[in-house]
Design a protein around this nucleic acid. Sequence first.
DNA 1: TTGAAAGCGCTAACAG
DNA 2: CTGTTAGCGCTTTCAA
Lengths: 355, 355
Amino acid sequence: MPTPVKPSRQPRRGLGRATLADVAAQAGVTSITVSRYLREPERVAPATRAVIARALQATGYVPNKQAGALASAGSGASRMVAALIPSIANSIFAETVQGLADGLQGSGCELMLASSGYSIEREEAQLRALLGWFPSAIIVTGRHHTAASLDLLAQAQQRGTPVIEIWDHHRDAHGFTQIGFDHAEVGAAMAAHLIARGYDSLAYVDSGVAEDFRAHERGEGFLATARRARVRARRLVAPQPGEAIEAGRLALPLLLEAKTGKPAFAAAAFANDRLACGALLEARARRLAIPGQLALLGFGDFALGRQLEPALSTVEVPRLEIGQAAARALRAALEHGAPLSDQRLPWALIARQSS
Amino acid sequence: MPTPVKPSRQPRRGLGRATLADVAAQAGVTSITVSRYLREPERVAPATRAVIARALQATGYVPNKQAGALASAGSGASRMVAALIPSIANSIFAETVQGLADGLQGSGCELMLASSGYSIEREEAQLRALLGWFPSAIIVTGRHHTAASLDLLAQAQQRGTPVIEIWDHHRDAHGFTQIGFDHAEVGAAMAAHLIARGYDSLAYVDSGVAEDFRAHERGEGFLATARRARVRARRLVAPQPGEAIEAGRLALPLLLEAKTGKPAFAAAAFANDRLACGALLEARARRLAIPGQLALLGFGDFALGRQLEPALSTVEVPRLEIGQAAARALRAALEHGAPLSDQRLPWALIARQSS
DNA sequence: TTGAAAGCGCTAACAG
DNA sequence: CTGTTAGCGCTTTCAA
């Protein structure tokens, strides 16, 4: 007689938290009924509902989401949104993350965040790690990624996981949804602005961060426009690393003639406002007339630039909106299966006093 | 004859991703061996290792972490760190999150982030949601939480989940590890500084954010110290909501006599640098002498304050360090079972020109 | 309206 | 050094 296995091994329950089965036992039903109550209460008889509600209270039940996600791996998913951004401390991305977090609030989705430090290699590693959680959606910054990352993202998308690239919007995309704007276009507008004001020799002071691709693209747009208008223009690179305002201070000498200390350009555009502010402060310290001797133009519209004297001309960008729009699009996709579509968000060149 | 169940139901595989079993089949071993290879390679024969490595490559296997976490719920945990902060866009917390994310980098832990908008009610809801993921550790901001949140945190800690309160360090704690500093003490130092400089009537301009508890505590420390020194001091509240620099501008009139427009106080301390900067800018616009007619003191050491003229006196706080220290402590606890202990981090009053 | 059975993908325990 | 077995806590499918 083949006696069944002896149930001898020691059980390995989770950390003492109430499970569905515990609640069910307390309520005198089976676990599936409690599960149903939690997800579609209308399908449970009112009387049963009341009993379950009480048992839920009594046990202090907290659903185990790993188990839930695992069990419904086929249909739904984890309800986790993975977001990969270059830097959290950079206020530009911090606001985007804020918009994303706020927009996801109440959707039942959690936000998993990773910060790559502007390294696409690190981004790849983080992407691999986050993919292990089966995120319901993936948000990456920009359209520059390692080949392997692109593969992973494409696979995820093929399996139905929404993939959104934020902060960029460009023809040459990889087939992912883009929510952002065209940086080359912004760069072009920056050059056009300075040219229209009559500045006849320009510099673009690029970020010293090697993988700040969007800053580089703005630079390319800037230089292309200057070239087309037959205006002299050069690309310079701010020193790195270090605090960006300080980097801007140190970048100013690049714009001056070594011997005389006089500006070698009529106007300079910067990869971001922090650099521009640093340069502006240093220029003031050296008693250069801004914009008389040297006009300055930033990017990002940081609080600091508005308060300096002269106030910094800059480009206002939809930092918060990018996050909000991504959250909105994801919710529509996750909740109603709405298709994702590219969104080109508006930006604006704000001419203040420095140009 | 009791024929076993007919295996008729349709299977419900996950989303077409390779599983351990797939890799194992390809390598000609069983899944447990692959699992072992992934976690403790030394325990697998070198020859087998090679085969598995190849199979891993070929299949593009990505481990399913929900399944992993579920299976080892008893012992380890999810390797997810839940962090609850008041605001991501606030640069002070953004840097803390950056320190946390960087510090967790390479630990195999993911960061789940939630931003409560300075509401302990919302924090509670978010805490409940995050707890469903069985986080390996929980980080909350400050020591003020709803009663229910405190319950949940205490339960988690009892089950062995590290709970850290960041940004605060206070006797009256709830038994969780604290990494931060004493805000009343900072407030006291702010008052002492102004008193030492000879200012004989003081104001503390508190944040208009009702649940910015730490700002309120600094205010209490400030007022207590003034009282003890028998110096006149009042608490005022900056208008809300809105952008903080703007709020600071609007707060300035509170410090002036309505009729004459002259300062009603000799010196004012602010809940944060943004408020202080706004007030400073507005004071300059009104041609008040700073610090001659009115001395100003901020908190947080934001980039802006350093650049204004006069440069803002302020309190430098360990924004980044708090996150780094929390990450370090968690890694030590998670990896080597090191006990968590409170950390009182240093801050410094920086007297610049505005006081 | 409720339940039984099976299984998501992985790992712990216990052999061999 | 490798495999077998059982089960983490939940949801799906099917049956009553």
